[in-house]
Simulated scan of single mutants.
Amino acid sequence: MIGYPILAIAPNRPEGYPKFEDVQVDRTGVSRADVVVTCRVSGFPAPNVHLWREVKTDGQTDYQRIRTDGRIFVDQRKYDRYTLLRGIIRGATSADAGIYLCSADNSLGSLRQQFRLTLGEGSTSKQAGLAIDGVTVDSTGENNQDVTITCTATGNPVPSLRLWQYKNGNYQVVQRSRRVVLNLQRGEKKSVFKVTIKKVTQADAGVYICSASNSEGTVRQQFNLTIQEHAVAGKGLPKMEDVTVVRTGPSNENAVITCSATGSPPPDVKLYKQISSEKDKEYQELETGGRLILNESPGASGTILTLLVMNVLPEDSGVYMCEASNTGGTVRQSFRWGIEGGNQQTAHGS
């Protein structure tokens, strides 16, 4: 089974616009006869994600939304800043092969990613003597600038493993080089193949296949490797070092909120307060004015932002969020603060 995503380079879009982080097709269930499609999409607000299949009627191409029905199960789960959709096709057959797409939309716009699902006899995992157990992708090395791909397969005889990258219209075997380290470990019935790509670039992103072969045949598992901007050499994702709240003044009538973040280049730091319900989580940026005095102090590798709240009032209590951004990306830490208590309160992030 191989999925061939049809990808396009997205133009610059505002922060929070839907972004496909991962689209995977896996086999599971008894005899690995079920197909699981996973679409993970980030965005703020968390986007709505749906699964569709291409259908042709009277020579016209259209897409039909896939819903839970009989042997098909579709589950969408929304989190703070991303949505995870899983579609399970039980007892998949060649009739389920075709072109599919995941669509994503929120208040900022919409996006879709298309892929081809093939269920040819030579590309499934139905053989009792051969199966790919899993493929994982981990960020490693200094500043997470390296990527390690691990393919695990079982079979009798013990299978050999290869990694392929889709380039220039076809799949090419990933070879050992100065930047690529290959490590194959073979046991009695299990093989583990680790490929480490050092100092990844955007050229390393794209569609890959892990293939496992023995005398029973060949099975493959396709996955999409996304390289986050902060993982590219020379760019450092900001790190939130500290968030504190300190009461000041003769009678503790004032409060100072401090957000400290580091990164390369030094990040811009902003402070927000939640102005809606816990469910909606809408935030408003805080600025100097009235009882608020905001000050941002950039340093060689970090930035400290302080907010002085004068004559604190009960309405100053609530959920706040520190945000740090640079060319490597954006990190956020939210915390809840109330005006009651002693001289100092440490904010606990979430």
Score class of each variant (00 low, 15 high):
282 E>H: 15
283 Y>H: 01
285 E>H: 09
285 E>Q: 11
285 E>K: 13
285 E>V: 15
285 E>R: 12
285 E>W: 02
286 L>D: 03
286 L>Q: 07
289 G>L: 04
290 G>E: 08
291 R>F: 08
291 R>S: 12
292 L>T: 03
292 L>S: 02
293 I>N: 10
293 I>C: 00
293 I>S: 12
294 L>F: 10
294 L>I: 06
295 N>R: 15
296 E>K: 11
296 E>Y: 06
297 S>A: 14
297 S>F: 13
297 S>V: 15
298 P>S: 05
298 P>V: 04
298 P>Q: 03
298 P>D: 09
299 G>A: 08
300 A>W: 14
300 A>L: 14
301 S>V: 12
301 S>P: 04
302 G>C: 08
302 G>S: 11
303 T>V: 02
304 I>F: 10
304 I>H: 00
304 I>C: 04
305 L>M: 11
305 L>Y: 06
306 T>D: 02
306 T>G: 02
307 L>V: 05
307 L>F: 05
307 L>C: 05
308 L>M: 08
308 L>T: 10
309 V>W: 01
310 M>V: 09
310 M>R: 14
311 N>K: 04
311 N>V: 05
311 N>P: 00
311 N>S: 11
312 V>W: 05
312 V>S: 09
312 V>T: 13
312 V>N: 09
314 P>D: 08
315 E>K: 12
316 D>P: 01
317 S>K: 04
317 S>P: 00
318 G>D: 06
319 V>R: 11
319 V>C: 07
319 V>I: 14
319 V>M: 10
320 Y>V: 04
321 M>A: 08
322 C>N: 05
323 E>C: 00
324 A>C: 08
324 A>G: 04
324 A>V: 01
325 S>G: 00
325 S>R: 13
325 S>W: 05
326 N>D: 03
327 T>I: 14
328 G>K: 02
330 T>F: 08
331 V>K: 04
331 V>E: 03
333 Q>R: 12
333 Q>E: 09
333 Q>S: 12
333 Q>I: 10
334 S>G: 13
334 S>Q: 15
334 S>C: 09
335 F>M: 10
336 R>V: 14
336 R>E: 14
338 G>I: 12
